[in-house]
């Protein structure tokens, strides 16, 4: 039986206006109640491989299990990928920069339960009752400066290397995933996106797009808005609506 048959979604990824390669990847499985965005680590060779491995592996997970087992399955899969992209990677002598990594944000929905699993700075937003909530907290230096040194967002953004990730799949021997579980209400809309999309948009713009009734319309609005800007990074979004 489809676990989230009433969910509609739309997904899109775009290289942006500057970058030649698109190292983002996304997964859209409304029938299975699973959506994912992964952003291959910029500057590292093989970033696209890392993000593609994440979406391809999560797409193959069994769906017949219950919500809790599926959530465990997602986490186990990401821990395995962390090993695969880290300890199992063949490195060449001539290449100094041999880290292959990716952010991940995954949303699993079944009936009125939802769970968001993430590592890195790809985000999950919730649009509920005409309000926008950021469900995921970035694993980035910028967020760390805000949390630990009480900087405001503007100060933290200006800090050198503020965009550096503090967590990602494949980046360190141990991966720590963050998980947020929540109850889903009728009319909820979710947005999974890479930093390339949200960096260029205000929360007003995100809200206006998510308020549209169809995910495809919301997605079109988000990309129209984002591509009007500089779009220096790859951009990816998945919009999900109950």
């Amino acid at each position: 039986m489809p676990v989230a048959a009433h969910w509609r979604s739309a997904a899109r990824t775009h290289a942006g206006k500057v970058r030649e390669r698109n190292e983002d990847a996304c997964l859209e499985c409304p029938e299975q109640g699973l959506w994912v965005v992964a952003d291959g680590m910029g500057g590292h060779q093989g970033g696209d491989i890392a993000s593609q491995m994440i979406v391809a592996s999560l797409a193959e997970l069994p769906v017949h299990e219950n919500f809790d087992d599926r959530l465990i399955g997602i986490r186990q899969c990401l821990h395995w990928l962390n090993r695969r992209l880290g300890q199992e990677l063949t490195v060449s002598a001539g290449r100094q920069d041999s880290i292959i990594g990716s952010t991940v944000v995954a949303l699993l929905v079944e009936e009125n339960r939802a769970a968001c699993v993430w590592a890195g700075d790809s985000r999950c937003y919730l649009w509920r009752g005409q309000r926008l909530y950021q469900l995921s907290r970035d694993h980035s230096l910028q967020q760390q400066l805000i949390d630990e040194r009480q900087m405001n967002a503007r100060q933290a953004r200006a800090y050198p290397g503020a965009h550096a990730l503090t967590r990602a799949v494949g980046a360190a021997e141990q991966l720590t995933l963050e998980v947020l579980e929540l109850e889903v209400f009728p009319g909820d809309a979710f947005l999974l996106c890479s930093d390339g999309l949200y960096q260029g948009l205000s929360s007003d713009a995100l809200g206006r797009a998510l308020n549209l009734a169809l995910p495809a319309m919301a997605l079109e609005r988000l990309f129209d808005d984002a591509l009007r800007g500089a779009a220096r990074d790859n951009l990816t979004a998945v919009v999900i609506r109950g």
Binding site: A11, T13, R21, E23, A25, E31, G46, A59, T236
Partner: peptide, 18 residues
């Protein structure tokens, strides 16, 4: 508005192998 029939799983095309 009409919506298209949803397919079960879609992943973005492998981009590095564009």
């Amino acid at each position: 508005a009409e919506s298209k029939e949803l397919e079960p799983a879609r992943t973005s095309a492998p981009s590095g192998f564009s």
